[in-house]
């Protein structure tokens, strides 16, 4: 009896305490310093990406400015001269740019038909078993480090090209082998982006075409591909951008020393923009030398080209996207 009474009193005491607190409680905002601090931290994390971009632009811009005001060269010579010979004070980016364009061209020659072809096969032809088996293989191809592709270019592709076209025709370092292997490297990127674009074409369009008596091939070429065009073009542009920025394959297989060749010869050694940056910075490089500054000028050029291509790709995929209901 006694304990029950005790318990009863206890309960009523707790209840009255709760009631008292309720009477005081308001719905006003309460300061929560912990929440605010976390919010600020998270915002900083997000803003860091902007600082990274600004950092890149600032660093490349500042050093390039030093380069162009050093008296050794100027922006006009940089953009128009076909000689890049730092020892002789010649800084024309065209030979490096030409090699970059050559390797990228070669890469796209491989990656566009094979990437698009395999995307069409996977999206339109392959039974689902084949698709689930093949996609990991493409992912493996995409996950291999570029330095390994560089090894492959130098020790497999170059000997293969020399075997086909002759030892005299093909130099040990050449843009063809680097470009072809780069194409293999980019193939999975193009393939998977293009496959996404193809798969997002509504089934109803395919059915409409089949319903009119089109063959599978006709449906793909005349309905599916045009409808997926924006995504496919975006994939190609991203592919080019990756080829332009790729470093290790060209550093190992394309050769050292700039080489302006006109008409372009894919079987001779030629240094690309990225290859040159890698080679020079890999050696003994003193800060504030013209060589050091010149790397940043090349980097700035590279940054503008790849940024331009990336923006173009985004614009294309937005601008030409068909809107289906």
């Amino acid at each position: 009896m006694q304990t029950q009474l005790e318990a009863g009193r206890e309960i009523s005491r707790v209840q009255s305490a709760v009631a008292a607190r309720r009477a005081q409680a308001t719905l006003f905002k309460r300061p929560r310093p912990g929440e605010d601090a976390i919010r600020v931290y998270l915002l900083l994390c997000g803003v860091l990406s902007i600082f990274t971009t600004l950092g890149i632009i600032f660093v490349l811009g500042e050093e390039s400015l030093r380069f162009f005001t050093s008296g050794v060269t100027d922006a006009v010579e940089f953009l128009t001269s076909i000689k890049w010979q730092p020892q002789a004070g010649e800084f024309g980016i065209l030979p490096l740019l030409e090699s970059t364009l050559m390797t990228s061209f070669m890469a796209m020659l491989v990656a566009i038909p094979l990437g698009l072809g395999s995307a069409i096969y996977l999206a339109e032809y392959a039974p689902s078993g084949v698709r689930t088996a093949m996609k990991p293989i493409l992912e493996v191809l995409a996950g291999i480090p570029t330095v390994v592709y560089g090894y492959f270019a130098l020790t497999f592709m170059t000997p293969a090209l020399r075997g086909i076209f002759g030892q005299d025709a093909v130099q040990i370092y050449n843009t063809a082998a680097a470009g072809i292997v780069m194409g293999i490297m980019i193939l999975p990127t193009i393939s998977s982006m293009a496959e996404d674009a193809l798969s997002s074409v509504p089934r109803s369009l395919r059915e409409a075409s089949y319903g009119l008596g089109a063959t599978r091939f006709e449906t793909i070429v005349k309905v599916v591909l045009p409808a997926a065009l924006s995504g496919i073009l975006a994939a190609f542009i991203i592919g080019i951008s990756r080829a332009v920025g790729e470093t290790m394959i060209v550093a190992l297989a394309a050769g050292a020393g700039s080489n302006w060749s006109f008409p372009p010869n894919f079987f001779v050694a030629a240094e690309t923009m990225t290859g040159h940056i890698a080679r020079i910075s890999g050696g003994d490089l003193s800060y504030d030398s013209v060589d050091y500054n010149s790397l940043f000028a090349i980097g700035l050029m590279l940054f503008f080209i790849t940024l331009g291509l990336n923006l173009l790709s985004q614009w294309v995929s937005k601008r030409f996207r068909e809107v289906y209901q």
Binding site: L205, E207, A208, S209, G211, L212, G213, A214, V223
Partner: peptide
């Protein structure tokens, strides 16, 4: 399919 055509549930113009 050429001789037996089809119209679908949702209009699906190309």
């Amino acid at each position: 399919r050429r001789r037996i055509g089809m119209v679908f549930q949702k209009p699906n113009p190309f």
